[in-house]
Amino acid sequence: MGLAWDYAGPQEIYAEMQQGMDSLDNIDWARLSEENSVTYPCLTPGGEGEDVVFGDGFPRASGRARFVPTWPTPPDETLDDDYPTVLTTGRQLEHWHTGSMTRRAYVLDSLEPAAVATLNPVELERLGIAAGEALSITTRRGQITLATRADPLTPAGMVFVPFCYAEAAANLLTNPALDPVGKIPEFKYAACRLARAESASASLDT
């Protein structure tokens, strides 16, 4: 990118962050290294830090927050006869992010050792699939096969797939379209079709 990112270590990165982040005021690197973590905002050097970020007001002339109403925009990819079901991806309690740490933890990986496709029991009945049987999930970008799990809290018409399993890479299925403002990929909504599969072992095909 042409930037001078030739830092000698994290201390220099932190010093640069302090130039543009008021939340780091009064929290120097030496203290952070010694205490490992410091609550912000910290109003004085050596202070304990505040429990509330904006306890006395918001950083505006009035001191009051400004709320702006907004309306959801339609998804980039809509459902149709070929792809009539919503695919959404996300985290699990046991594997809260990519699994790079949690899947190395024996207890956590024992609780959730493999990816599953979670559906409402109504959806499983519609598909003629029992919980635990294999399901093929196909989008315009690829296909994966997972064992199923019934969950009445999952909305009908939707399938949930965790994204932390490399052997069942859910993000190969998701839509890379970006939010026009936040530039966040549309990983939470993609059109898919579901069908009974022969094997419940995780597999993928792009």
Results as ranks from 00 to 15, higher is better:
Thr118Glu: 09
Ala200Gln: 08
Asp22Gly: 13
Ala177Cys: 02
Gly128Gln: 12
Trp96Cys: 05
Ala105Asn: 14
Phe187His: 09
Arg66Tyr: 07
Asn175Leu: 04
Thr139Arg: 02
Ala115Phe: 00
Glu12Ile: 05
Gly99Val: 01
Phe163Arg: 08
Arg64Pro: 13
Ala190Thr: 06
Trp71Arg: 10
Thr89Leu: 09
Ser23Asn: 08
Ala130Arg: 15
Ser33Met: 13
Pro10Arg: 04
Lys183Glu: 11
Asn171Tyr: 11
Gly46Arg: 05
Ala15Ser: 04
Gly9Phe: 08
Arg31Val: 08
Glu50Gly: 12
Ala177Lys: 00
Ser33Phe: 10
Asp76Met: 08
Val122Tyr: 08
Thr118Ala: 05
Glu16Val: 05
Glu48Leu: 11
Gly55Asn: 10
Glu48Ala: 12
Arg141His: 12
Ala131Asp: 07
Cys164His: 08
Phe187Asn: 04
Thr44Ile: 06
Leu111Glu: 03
Ala190Asp: 01
Val86His: 02
Lys183Gly: 13
Val181Trp: 13
Gly99Leu: 00
Leu79Ala: 07
Ala156Ile: 04
Leu124Lys: 14
Tyr189Asn: 07
Leu178Tyr: 05
Tyr14Ser: 07
Thr98Ser: 12
Arg193Asn: 12
Glu16Thr: 14
Ala197Cys: 08
Asp205Pro: 13
Thr39Pro: 11
Asn120Val: 12
Thr39Ile: 04
Asp82Ala: 09
Ala156Trp: 13
Ser100Gly: 12
Ala117Asn: 02
Gln92Ser: 01
Glu94Arg: 02
Tyr83Glu: 10
Leu119Trp: 07
Pro121Ala: 09
Cys192Trp: 00
Glu186Asn: 14
Ser136Ile: 07
Gly128Met: 14
Asp51Met: 10
Asp109Cys: 03
Thr89Pro: 02
Pro180Thr: 06
Arg91Gln: 08
Asp25Asn: 07
Ala134Met: 13
Glu186Leu: 04
Ser33Gln: 06
Ser37Arg: 02
Val107Phe: 01
Gly57Gln: 14
Thr88Leu: 11
Gln92Met: 01
Phe54Tyr: 13
Thr148Val: 05
Pro162Asp: 01
